[in-house]
Design a protein around this nucleic acid. Structure first.
Lengths: 227, 227, 227, 227
DNA sequence: CATTAATCGAGACGGTACGTCTAGTCTTCAG
DNA sequence: CTGAAGACTAGACGTACCGTCTCGATTAATG
């Protein structure tokens, strides 16, 4: 498990774990790590049962066996809490084993991302916090750091793998390459989200292959042996 | 203005204006059409200022100079009201003038859709109601009818135009064709939404052309027989 | 029942009952008189069971079968609510039937006042609101109007009766008379309160006669026939 | 300073200073006497600023520069803390110098007690703890020992002095004498409290003389044999 | 002098009540 | 019957204190 950002909450100040050697929080009773775990777990469970809009922090606290204050000490509100609760799931995203071709790799990423989006807690909450971030800059950067960047990494790794295989030409203009990677990311993630949330249809392997083919073709990736 | 669906709200039964000949509501004071307009306008204004989650119906009623009762007589709740307020904007979507090629047509649709999504009230509210619809079937149909189908029409019209131009082969398998149209729709709409809401970057013509090129290439639309 | 001040609450504005003929509250649903009664009754019941410091407005609302908002619409807080709840009891104070002598009349007043103070809701709450009024001018005037003046009236009536009987000389200096009435009032009320709350002993007729004798002697009241 | 009772607080068991010879607390760091003083002082200061109901122990601790733990180690709660904070002030009560007559002595006591009650911390807190004691027997005894008995002593001393002067007949029936002393105590203390808290008027020497005259007359203290 | 054990500051913890806000309904009067 | 006004029930909100607890760091008196 690689995340180290979240759960530091409202007032991480000096002394959060990723601040080693610093004059960490010396004094007072330390925060309970068990409470952190219980709260994030309870949040996901409540999302599954109630959905985003019926989720209340009082209920989360009760499920976690924790006082409301304990919750508010760590997160400023529902939005931030849910972002961190989701982030723990996105931690597990990894580039699937090499599928042998760009098509196959993309399809693998699509399926993995879709599997995440089909979890009811993600389905109900992911876009909800994105919507909230519309009017909240801090929340937006929190989402970017905790969730978006984690996904984007897969796109970059996949591109690198395809270049190694010779399916994609080496980057000539780095800015252009970044632009293209961003586009791919928006296409893959956006399409999966739209399919799942707006069109309300499941992502099956056939659909994933269609999308992957479309993207790969759009990238002008010839078959690997074309070199 | 072409819509005729909405604004019938809670109690559409007999008596909606477009229900001629029926034993329409005979008696009592008729509902004020001015109130309808004021409410939908106030809803959009409030969305711009407050965003989705801070929007309250009491506030909308106050802005519209209308009693809460009047509002609840027409719409069952915040979700439905906002869908109708957005729908008025989506009414204006039309397939842009023929750009001469599939690429150009797609880019035109992308830009038009992006222009809508960059309006703050749409940005904040569109996905919000979609999220709410996750647990609400009626709302989902309402959104589909008032918003989604209106967009999808553009995709179908664009495909038809491309086939007339000879860029796309005529449909062989109608089911396959529908599946492809759905994919295109998810790709275009999903990517634009993701770019706008998650990546938080504006859609400029260059980006629109990139996306259009990717989609067109993915469709296997060569410059076609035009070569 | 003579009171007409209370229960108008926070925002009596124009239109409270005692503002007849004025452009009274014309519009909107009128406040429920039943709720008023239920709340004040529930307040007294809760005081009896819980005492002042454990009394919570949420509990009062629940007992009254009323929402908390209904309660806060009428009273700004616990202090004011309790003052009005007590005031209804003090409404019933009246000068006892003529006892034939100043002594007897004073003893009657003492007993009547003591009977009120021995009710558990009064015992626990009366001085509590007085204490709160230490830092709250508005509360102080509310107490004065709703409770204190109602008691003081008895002193004035008793003095008048004694003068009619010839036990007390007619007032020569009105200012001096007022000062004396105030002193009597502080002595009678203060002593009974102190006996009841601080010394924690019941007021029996014998004690009442002792106090009455002391006060009457201090007033220099000869027996009535002394004229 | 004569008090030696308080400050033993929660855990007086073995080890309070006045528990000599016992197997007193032998080991460990002794409690800071400075903290005791700081806490009681901070309590009075906070009472002056905030009044009884807004006084919080967290605030007292902060003012005293002390942790909440330190405070709770010594006193079980707000009530007991405030009683001890007030008690330090009542320690200073003494029977004023002989005024030459019962009247004058009573007036002196009245003025002295009134001076105490006009201190804002006493005004707001004295009756507050009495009210709390309504439902708390332990607190009632604590108040009686720390405050009430200290005042009552003055009444007894004053009566003794008056008897020595010949203004009062020697006690015939001790029970009757006790009853009379209690009455006097309730009259003097109760009246002063009522004047100060309920009527909200200052006690000036003229008023004190009026009250003293009334009480002395009621006691049947003629100028006695002095005539 | 080292040990020992209670104290200290700091602050997290589970609770409870607060007073406010919003949702959606109901009740009154005016047109 | 509509519409404005506003009271109504219900319940979540985020905050404030309570009194307890867990830390690491001081201190005296004891050994």
């Amino acid at each position: 498990m690689s995340r180290s950002t979240s759960a530091a909450g409202t007032d991480p100040g000096p002394g959060t774990p990723q601040d080693p050697g610093a004059a960490a929080r010396r004094t007072g009773r330390p925060r309970s790590a068990a409470a952190d775990r219980a709260i994030l777990g309870a949040t996901r469970a409540a999302l599954v049962e109630l959905g985003w809009s019926r989720l209340t922090l009082g209920d989360v606290a009760a499920r976690a066996g924790v006082a409301k204050t304990t919750l508010y000490r760590r997160w400023p509100g529902k939005n931030e809490l849910v972002v961190d609760a989701l982030a723990e799931l996105f931690d597990e995203l990894e580039l699937p084993a090499d599928g042998g071709s760009l098509d196959a790799d993309i399809a693998g990423v699509v399926l993995q991302f879709a599997a995440l989006l089909e979890r009811p807690e993600v389905r109900t909450a992911l876009m909800a916090v994105v919507v909230e971030a519309t009017h909240d800059d801090e929340l937006r950067t929190r989402i970017r750091r905790a969730i978006v960047d984690r996904q984007k990494r897969l796109v970059l790794q996949g591109r690198a793998r395809a270049r190694r295989r010779g399916e994609l030409a080496p980057d000539e203009d780095p800015a252009e390459a970044a632009r293209q990677a961003d586009l791919i990311f928006d296409v893959v993630a956006g399409t999966v989200v739209h399919r799942t949330l707006v069109s309300c249809e499941d992502v099956d392997p056939a659909w994933a292959r269609s999308l992957a083919a479309l993207v790969a073709a759009g990238l002008g990736a010839g078959p690997a042996d074309r070199t």
